[in-house]
């Protein structure tokens, strides 16, 4: 299908502050597919999300990222977004003085290009409809972007942006953290409503919980900055039941994390503090 995107990550390596966190990660996502990346904390999952979006703190050292034949790594952050990449962030910024509505209209218009701006009426109608779908209070339209939003409200606002921007490739970075069960259901419904041949998803999470609401086609486990195991939805279920230890055992991994400060001074167990 012509509109079905292909997103290919090949041998991606990336540094944060000079430390290599991604150590050669490959993955292909096609339109209509939902991929879940799971793994314990500190294994490089969020680094993957940020590096794909082009956060200046993350330096890609090797590998390629291609969306529909175009080199994503050559693009500036805003170009990546306009090409169809969307990252629902774990910690969205709060921006005083910029209302949610102004922000979203600017984002939509940036995508549509000069001379083809969305009319105000049409935009407001769309935004209202999507907010209703996410059970958001209409007042959030005119609130300053994420300012004073609770954790759950911020996550819903990220999904609202996804609904309005209609990206080709959606990356959800720990969208389930800080959500109660109701919010989780609403967010998942929002994602499911967007599921189509024209869109691929990469869902990053360390709980299986979200995957009860969004059924993934592929599940990948990340450790030490790369994908160490892939499978279908049954893999997520086994992780839920048994945790990650069996994978570590199977692969002979002792420490699954990457780039953690090992030089940190630890008080030896056999000493006591001086007595005064």
């Amino acid at each position: 299908m012509a509109n079905s995107p292909t997103f290919t990550i090949d041998g991606l390596k990336a540094n944060v502050e000079g430390k290599e966190i991604l150590k050669g990660l490959s993955l292909e996502i096609k339109g209509g597919e939902i991929h879940a990346i799971m793994g314990p904390n500190g294994t490089g999952k969020s680094t993957l999300a940020s590096a794909l979006m082009g956060h200046p703190k993350y330096e890609v050292t090797e590998g390629s990222v291609v969306l529909d034949g175009e080199d994503v790594l050559e693009m500036a952050v805003d170009e990546r977004a306009r090409a169809g990449l969307f990252l629902a962030m774990q910690y969205p910024s709060e921006i005083t003085g910029v209302t949610n509505a102004d922000f979203l209209r600017s984002a939509i218009n940036a995508r549509r290009g000069e001379g083809n701006e969305i009319s105000l009426i049409k935009f407001i109608r769309q935004m209202e409809a999507k907010m209703k779908q996410l059970e958001m209070n209409p007042e959030f339209m005119h609130r300053y972007l994420n300012e004073g939003f609770s954790g759950g409200e911020k996550k819903r606002n990220e999904i609202l942006q996804m609904l309005l921007l209609e990206p080709k490739i959606v990356i959800l970075d720990e969208i389930d953290s800080g959500l109660d069960i109701d919010a989780l259901r609403i967010v998942a419904e929002g994602v499911n409503a967007m599921r189509s041949e024209e869109r691929g998803f990469l869902i990053i999470t360390h709980y299986q919980r979200l995957l009860n609401y969004i059924n993934p086609d592929f599940v990948h486990v990340m450790m030490q900055g790369r994908i160490v195991k892939s499978g279908g939805p049954e893999l997520a279920e086994r992780l839920e039941a048994e945790g990650y230890d069996w994978i570590k055992e199977e692969l002979g991994i002792v420490d699954e994390t990457v780039g953690q400060d090992e030089e940190e001074f630890k008080i030896p167990m056999n000493t006591t503090a001086p007595k005064y």
Binding site: D78, A81, S93, T96, G97, A110
Partner: peptide, 25 residues
């Protein structure tokens, strides 16, 4: 903040302008 706005497709100069006006808003 600039990165966040850019990640939604807003060009850098527009993002900065939004933030500056937002500061006074």
């Amino acid at each position: 903040q600039v990165h966040y706005l850019m990640s939604r497709g807003i060009p850098k100069e527009v993002a900065q302008r939004l933030i500056i006006y937002g500061f006074l808003a």
